[in-house]
Write a protein that binds this DNA or RNA. Structure first.
Lengths: 214, 214
DNA sequence: TATTACTGACTGACAGTCAGTCAGTTTAGG
DNA sequence: CCTAAACTGACTGACTGTCAGTCAGTAATA
């Protein structure tokens, strides 16, 4: 038994392998996906994998870079919009709620122990991409007079940390049952406080301008 | 070559294995520590390991349970103290800054990729232990009239998320250089805002009552 | 013909298994 | 009360299966 050997443009092959890997990562998790599974799915030899990727972790990095680049592009677009800072903050968060596989599934997925490495790497890689533009939005808000903080960078860091913790709590350790509505309410409340914004300004803006666009 | 076989009280043996494992985890990281390394260090056979532990992950869980129990005991003590909520909050955070190997080393350790599983598991396990008592402190503060929030639980979650994010070295790419002093300043600022406390109240209390005790 | 893409058998390291060993303890017969 | 047989459970270490990663060689292509 033998198969015809096909040589493809390396970029094409690389994509093939990467896509197969991503599908398997989403299906079985990173740990449980063997390199032999990936090459079987693509229909190439094990060596081909290592011709295109340095290691199994290297594919993971490529996967994460894809996700992060997708998000970065969207965020840059938001920063360049000609709207006020409140709107930008809300758009900014909408990107996270819809990015990648979709926040809900993504969140559960990231918290599975078989994806621990993926989780850690994503966190490490995404913050430097996301925080500087967010800081700019906050500074815009300060100029506009709607935000008031001495530490715009740390405010950005704190908001991401806090909102992440609030929405993660849903999956793990919530005492009170957390509805989607309460999550929105508490997250915007915390954001307003950290940014020194008028109480209720985000929720008001959200109800007026964001919801109608759904 | 042969060694005398020694049978010990299972609890003793278990501790021996656990301690050796912990030392190796701290030295080489979780991933890089092989079960064969652990048993070599204790001087027992591989099978003995699996007589006392279900799996390699099982030792990790035992290790984490140890750390968490140590912290839980300290936190409970703080909650039972007869002092005001501001003091309790500050003591609460001091426990985290000195717990385990020491915050600084622990933080670096946890962010190494070879410890990704350890990191994720610790996060998952520690929050349910830490948040409910912290919520109680916040409620005490509300009764005392120094805090003002409608969402004490989410405030607790947000504070942990935010302060973690600020100190976790997500500020690797910070524009301003982050000193220990700035970290304290920004963290207390964020806490005050989330809790609706008077501006500067934590820092003032810290400088007055906490620093003298060092 | 040279270079590039690819092959798949191979290696070494690892987590976990298992049939069997042996020191100590309990039981039963004298 | 002694002792030998039966039993228990901690322990052994060679073994298995799986996996990431390697490499000497082969086919396709420029």
């Amino acid at each position: 038994m033998f198969l015809v050997r096909v040589a493809k443009d390396p970029e094409i092959r690389r994509k093939e392998i990467l896509n197969a890997a991503i599908e398997l990562f989403e299906e079985k998790g990173y740990d449980a996906t063997a390199v032999s599974d990936i090459v079987k799915k693509v229909g190439v030899a094990q060596g081909t994998f290592y011709y295109h990727f340095k290691s199994k972790e290297d594919v993971l990095d490529a996967f994460l870079d894809d996700i992060i680049e997708e998000i970065r592009v969207k965020l840059t677009a938001i920063c360049d919009m000609e709207i006020d800072s409140i709107g930008k903050v809300l758009y900014y968060f909408r990107v996270f709620n819809t990015a990648g596989i979709g926040r809900e599934r993504m969140m559960v997925y990231l918290h599975e122990e078989r994806n621990a490495l993926l989780h850690l790497k994503l966190e490490k890689k995404i913050y430097p991409k996301v925080l500087p533009p967010f800081q700019k939005i906050i500074q815009q808000g300060i100029s506009e007079g709607v935000f008031d903080t001495e530490y715009p960078y740390e405010a950005a860091v704190a908001i991401f940390g806090a909102s992440n913790a609030i929405s993660e709590g849903k999956h793990d350790h919530a005492i009170t049952e957390v509805t989607e509505d309460r999550r929105l309410l508490t997250t915007t409340d915390v954001m307003e406080r950290i940014l020194g914004a008028e109480k209720g300004i985000f929720i008001k803006y959200y109800r007026d301008k964001m919801e109608e666009k759904r």
